[in-house]
Each structure stands twice: as C-alpha cells, then as structure tokens.
C-alpha cells in the first residue's frame, strides 16, 4: 500500500529523485513527520479549515463512518476504513484518503516520467515510508523493475525489520539511507513502540542490521533524527556517533556519511488531520549550537557529517 509519490525530491539521495512512500511501519515514533505512514490501512486526513460543509463526502461514504457535524464540518468514526471515493468526493481539498493499493507497473509509469531529470542529475527512485521493507516482496519487486528500467535506486528505512528482508534488498545495487535513532535498547523501545504492539521493537534489531549492511560494504548513509528529550543529550548522541564511527568499513573507504536531522514540527497539522494528539509542545526546537556541537563530535570521530538531509 502506497500513500504518496513525490516527484522532484532533493533530500532523499543524490540528484533529483522521485520518492514512493509505502504505508505502514513497525515503529510509531512520536516525532514522525509522516504520521499517516504508520498504519498499514487507509486513513482519512481531514483539514477542518478547508471544509465547506457540503456533505459530498458523507454522501460518498454511504453513511459509513462519516456524518455531518451539526456545528459545521464532519465527524469521523476512525474505526471504519474509508472507501477511496470518499476522498475523491471532496471539492474543497479538505479530505483525502491516505493509502491505496498500487501495482508495480502503475508506480513505475509515474517514476519514469522524470527519467530525463534522473539522467541529468544522477538521481532516481527512492522508496520510503512508512517502512518499505515491511512490505518486502512488493518493495523488492518495485526496486527490481526500476533497476531493469535503468533507474538508480535508493531506500529510506528504519531497519526495524527481519534480517532476511535486509539481506534480500542488500543483494541489489541499492543506496541505503538508514535510520540510527538510539543505541540504548530501553530508550529506543519506549519511544518507538506502537500502542498495539506488545513489547515493542528491540533496538538491537536495527543496530544489527546496520552492522550487517556496513559489513558487506553497502552504500550506506546514516540518518540521525535529533529529538528533544529522546536523544539530544550528550550521552545519547555520543553513543550514537561512536556506534556509527565503529561500524566496519574497508580500509580505503571514504568517511562514513551521517546526516543529523534536527527535530521540526511541520507535521503537527497532519496529526490533527488524523484526529491524533501531537506529543510535543508548539515552537519546540533543538538549539542550533547543540547541533553544531554534535556535528563537531561526529567529525572528530571521523564521520562525514551533514546537518539536514
């Protein structure tokens, strides 16, 4: 299931790229900038200020899950899975359904529309999410088809997936943009677990996958979200950067690339659109001096640090 395809993306691997967003993720990080990517099922995103209370969506839903709010706007029963036509019915761009099933051929058609720009810029396809390897068969099929069409391929992944999926993907000439959120198992589990998943994900799973990828010499860039109260303290960040610096690499390889991605709250509106609460207070930022200090630390450890993607 896919929830978006974004052309002309410039922060998701080299050159000009088209990003295909897979819906569904084993993690549920509170700072996620695509909260609609977490569930594996279609969801409604609703922007109240755009709504003109016309009732088109209620009619299209056939009385299932939507009803007009007497005070204006609509009330959404989120336990009902929305039909695709409910989003299409909205004339005001106030309501859309995130998530639809697409075939590999359909996605590839869209991706290849920008083939000229990939060629000129050294860009290509990036699969992202959500967690693309949570739909491993589908993801691999798409990557192989793109490769056969001569398109450069990349993946953005949290690596919280079984090793077998990583191994299959690693067999392809794939650029990896892999998350490294924390090295402490308890902190990782507490911050990333889904309410509906008992026990949560062990930090050892992504860390082990990173070691595996680094060990086989994959084209690997680490991405570290810098999140207030989660990993923006000196000890956590030192642990992360030291882990990154200690990953195996060939003697003649260039320094390991690592992107520090400072927390931002641009996605807060999407949480509201999903009817969910946003966990962070408004206006929260990570101090830029602190980010700079982490960057210096990373550089001192021999890493190739970029701030931002």
């Amino acid at each position: 299931m896919i929830f978006d395809i974004q052309r002309f993306s410039t922060h998701d691997g080299p050159g000009i790229r088209t990003v295909v967003f897979f819906k569904g993720c084993p993690l549920s990080c509170a700072w996620c900038e695509n909260p609609e990517s977490q569930s594996f099922r279609p969801e409604l995103l609703y922007t109240r200020v755009r709504c003109v209370s016309c009732g088109s969506c209620v009619a299209a839903a056939g009385g299932e899950g939507l009803r007009a709010d007497p005070a204006g706007g609509i009330q959404i029963d989120r336990s009902v899975e929305p039909r695709p036509e409910v989003g299409a019915a909205c004339p005001a761009l106030a309501l859309r359904v995130a998530g639809r099933d697409m075939g590999v051929a359909e996605i590839l058609d869209e991706v290849l529309k920008d083939a000229s720009f990939f060629a000129a810029s050294g860009g290509g396809l990036t699969i992202s999410g959500g967690e693309p390897l949570a739909q491993a068969d589908f993801a691999l099929e798409l990557l192989e088809a793109a490769l056969a069409a001569g398109v450069d391929i990349a993946i953005e992944t949290c690596l919280a997936v079984p090793r077998a999926s990583v191994e299959r993907a690693a067999a392809l000439p794939l650029r990896w943009l892999a998350d490294l959120k924390h090295t402490d198992a308890a902190a990782f589990r507490a911050a990333t677990s889904r309410a509906d998943a008992a026990g949560g994900v062990d930090a050892c799973l992504p860390l082990g996958n990173l070691e595996y990828l680094a060990g086989r010499g994959a084209d690997l860039t680490l991405r570290v979200p810098v999140i207030p109260g989660f990993n923006d303290d000196e000890a956590s960040m030192r642990g992360i950067l030291e882990f990154a610096a200690g990953l195996p690499r060939a003697a003649d390889a260039k320094p390991r690339r690592l992107d520090l991605l400072p927390y931002h709250d641009l996605a807060a509106g999407k949480y509201a659109g999903l009817g969910r609460a946003y966990a962070f207070p408004p206006g929260l930022r990570v101090d830029s001096a602190r980010i700079a200090r982490f960057a210096e630390l990373g550089i001192a450890l021999g890493l190739d640090i970029t701030i931002g993607g």
Binding site: G15, I16, S116, F117, A119, A120, S121, G123
Partner: peptide
C-alpha cells in the same frame, strides 16, 4: 547543482 541538472534535462531532452 540540482538546478543545473534540472535546466539541462529541460533543455536537452525536453
């Protein structure tokens, strides 16, 4: 560099 690439693709190919 991406803008350069964008221009080249627009002009050369398209």
């Amino acid at each position: 560099d991406r803008l350069v690439a964008l221009l080249r693709a627009f002009f050369d190919d398209l």
